Amino acid sequence: MKAIIPAAGLGTRLRPLTFTRPKPVLRVAGQPIIRHAIHTLVQAGIRDIGIIVSEVTRAEIQHAVRELTDLNITLIDQTRQLGLGHAVLTARDWVGQDDFCVYLGDNLFEKGAAPFVEAFRQTRPDALIALVEVADPTAFGVAELDGTRIVRLVEKPKTPPSNMAVAGLYCFTPRIFEMLDGMPPSARGEYEITDGIQRLIESGADVQGQQVEGWWKDTGRPADLLEANRLLLERLESQVEGEVVDSQLTGRVVVPASSRVIRSKIQGPVVLGENVLIEDAYIGAFTSIGRDSVVRRAEIEHSVVDAEAVIENVDTRLQDCLIGVRAQVRGGRRVPRTHKLTLSDASVIELV
């Protein structure tokens, strides 16, 4: 069985973070989002993974997966971004006659892909779709069910047939390509995977729904990234190998051998990347600090700091922050009560 991860889009809902980088390479819990997706597919026994990329995203995606070994990763070019159905059809030649899974790389599942892949392998319907119960189904593709069988699938309906929304994981036989091939675009000009699945249903195919167990997170917005970071850090196991001088580490903390913590306090769960310096600082729970970053004479908690960032001389504790690659936060004289920041890569903020 193979897997497809669509990663050709621009992630406009996460701007300004995605002005310079595609969404799948943004980090949560110390790793690019796409690596979490790949990890869960490998845990499900899938090692042939095709990543759909565009001219804009190819280089960053290739860089994010360069160190992964013991699996076969193929980058598949999508020259135009015309919807998820089009992205899947782009991978038709690569998939061949194999069964395959489509995993939206910005989605995270507490129990991963394995429950869905295993159920699909056991019963082998024409399609198996991950479903999650939501409060407002109008923002999702929604399934109408007869037991576990999906009898109708509607994209963002004004009057939802149920509250069971399509989550970001699908398992298919190659029959889905016959439905996508020649399918007309939707009203918004895209080729919707839900329309392809509906055609599959109308052809008499067996399309099954399986409810997500545990939490599910779509990391499409800044607040979702912070929540995903929190959920993943809940699983963290302590590993302190780096230099710790006159400091207090409480809870689950990861300090790589190349990182240093000097005269500081860290309240876990917290993960530090390689070659990080924490000096005269406080790092609060549910925070991840990217490689080559510096936090000096500052306090930060419940935040995601990417690589090569600098935070120093900030008198007010930073909370709920997303700080991009090479971004800088430097303090001054004025001390507002709180700061909440979403900074794109290479930005510089002077707090004076």
Rank of each mutant, 00 (worst) to 15 (best):
residue 125 P to H: 12
residue 136 D to Q: 11
residue 148 T to C: 09
residue 106 D to Y: 14
residue 147 G to A: 13
residue 126 D to C: 11
residue 114 A to M: 00
residue 160 P to D: 06
residue 119 A to C: 06
residue 161 P to L: 06
residue 148 T to Q: 06
residue 111 K to E: 06
residue 147 G to W: 08
residue 133 E to H: 05
residue 111 K to N: 14
residue 148 T to H: 04
residue 155 E to P: 04
residue 146 D to P: 01
residue 163 N to L: 14
residue 112 G to R: 03
residue 106 D to Q: 12
residue 106 D to K: 10
residue 117 V to M: 02
residue 157 P to W: 02
residue 116 F to G: 05
residue 156 K to A: 15
residue 134 V to F: 07
residue 126 D to T: 05
residue 126 D to Q: 13
residue 162 S to W: 07
residue 114 A to W: 04
residue 127 A to Q: 07
residue 113 A to L: 12
residue 153 L to A: 04
residue 142 V to R: 09
residue 163 N to P: 01
residue 133 E to Y: 09
residue 147 G to Q: 07
residue 145 L to Q: 05
residue 116 F to K: 03
residue 152 R to S: 12
residue 116 F to Q: 01
residue 152 R to Q: 15
residue 161 P to G: 10
residue 127 A to C: 07
residue 141 G to W: 01
residue 117 V to N: 12
residue 146 D to E: 11
residue 142 V to K: 03
residue 127 A to R: 08
residue 156 K to N: 10
residue 132 V to K: 13
residue 151 V to F: 11
residue 118 E to W: 00
residue 144 E to F: 04
residue 128 L to E: 01
residue 164 M to N: 00
residue 164 M to Y: 10
residue 129 I to G: 09
residue 135 A to W: 14
residue 153 L to W: 04
residue 136 D to R: 11
residue 120 F to I: 09
residue 145 L to F: 11
residue 128 L to Y: 05
residue 140 F to T: 08
residue 124 R to I: 11
residue 126 D to H: 13
residue 109 F to S: 10
residue 119 A to D: 12
residue 120 F to A: 05
residue 154 V to N: 06
residue 120 F to R: 00
residue 150 I to V: 14
residue 153 L to Y: 09
residue 126 D to P: 01
residue 136 D to G: 08
residue 162 S to H: 04
residue 110 E to C: 04
residue 135 A to G: 07
residue 117 V to E: 02
residue 145 L to N: 11
residue 115 P to S: 00
residue 121 R to Q: 04
residue 113 A to D: 01
residue 147 G to R: 03
residue 124 R to V: 11
residue 129 I to P: 01
residue 152 R to P: 06
residue 109 F to E: 06
residue 108 L to H: 14
residue 118 E to S: 06
residue 125 P to I: 05
residue 111 K to T: 13
residue 151 V to H: 09
residue 134 V to C: 02
residue 108 L to S: 03
residue 121 R to V: 01
residue 121 R to A: 12
residue 164 M to G: 00
residue 157 P to C: 14
residue 147 G to S: 09
residue 121 R to L: 06
residue 110 E to H: 06
residue 158 K to D: 15
residue 129 I to W: 07
residue 106 D to M: 15
residue 138 T to Y: 08
residue 129 I to D: 00
residue 142 V to F: 05
residue 119 A to N: 01
residue 163 N to W: 00
residue 115 P to I: 05
residue 109 F to N: 08
residue 135 A to R: 13
residue 112 G to Y: 02
residue 131 L to R: 08
residue 162 S to Y: 08
residue 141 G to R: 07
residue 135 A to N: 14
residue 122 Q to S: 08
residue 141 G to Y: 07
residue 155 E to T: 11
residue 132 V to H: 11
residue 139 A to T: 02
residue 145 L to V: 01
residue 141 G to T: 04
residue 162 S to G: 07
